[in-house]
Design a protein around this nucleic acid. Structure first.
Length: 221
DNA sequence: ATTTGATCATAA
DNA sequence: TTATGATCAAAT
């Protein structure tokens, strides 16, 4: 089921382009929910299943043997992202010696298969179309920007400045809550170096950054 | 509680 | 109108 090579994965992904969610879901015998309110991960899971990703919630890349992460990204009629993109949870403790090179962010974004999907809410979920896939690796410039933001944001975390963190920090990467709700907790470090219960945070890519990825693909062709 | 998959919905 | 902060579901 799982593709053996990058070429095979890409070929499969290309073959899905143009299908609607209901067409693909029918092939896979998966029911289509009315909307995404209570099924926010449905589109991502649908594409994972279709492409043979090792489903489940393991902390690894979707196609570990290929070193590729799969991301669906909702876009509007002009192909621009409608949402930010979750990358990974931010480690709030045990960060001594963690560098950009060894970070989860860098490793997650080494190679990403982006699949744009129609995301405008006026289109019924079942009728939304799957777009043409883009296999992306960060350019030197893109990685530099990511690294700069990551280092700035990690400084807030390691220095115990969690209360000063908000989504406005970071040019292309931001930190935002990532949990079941605002009462979710995880362990963090306060300004005195003490372990505290705090809101789990995740790294997200700003829309401008992912728009660039999708847009640059246009010029490569 | 934490990881995966993300989008929702209200404040600004 | 849009970005920030909040939230939803499944698997582990």
């Amino acid at each position: 089921m799982t593709p053996k090579t990058e070429q095979e994965l890409l070929f499969r992904a290309k073959s899905l382009a143009g299908l609607t969610f209901s067409e693909l879901a029918k092939e896979l015998s998966i029911p289509v929910p009315e909307n995404l309110t209570r099924d926010k991960g449905w589109v991502g899971t649908l594409l994972e299943t279709a492409l043979g990703a090792n489903a489940g919630s393991k902390p690894e890349q979707d196609f570990q043997h290929l070193g590729i992460e799969l991301k669906t990204i909702p876009v509007n009629s002009q192909g621009k992202p409608l949402e930010t993109t979750f990358v990974c949870l931010a480690p709030l403790t045990q960060n001594s010696g963690v560098s950009w090179e060894s970070s989860h962010v860098k490793n997650k974004l080494k190679k990403v298969l982006w699949i744009p999907v129609e995301g405008e809410r006026h289109i019924p979920l079942a009728k939304r179309h799957i777009g043409y896939p883009i296999l992306w690796e960060p350019s030197l410039q893109q990685e530099q920007r990511l690294k700069r933001d990551w280092e700035e944001l990690m400084e807030y975390i390691t220095l115990g400045k969690l209360t000063l963190i908000n989504a406005k920090l970071g040019e292309v990467l931001q930190l935002r809550p990532k949990g079941a709700n605002s009462r979710s907790t995880t362990k963090g470090i306060d300004q005195y170096g003490q372990i505290i219960d705090t809101l789990p945070l995740g790294f997200y890519l700003r829309k401008e950054f992912t728009a660039d990825i999708l847009n640059n693909f246009l010029y490569e062709k």
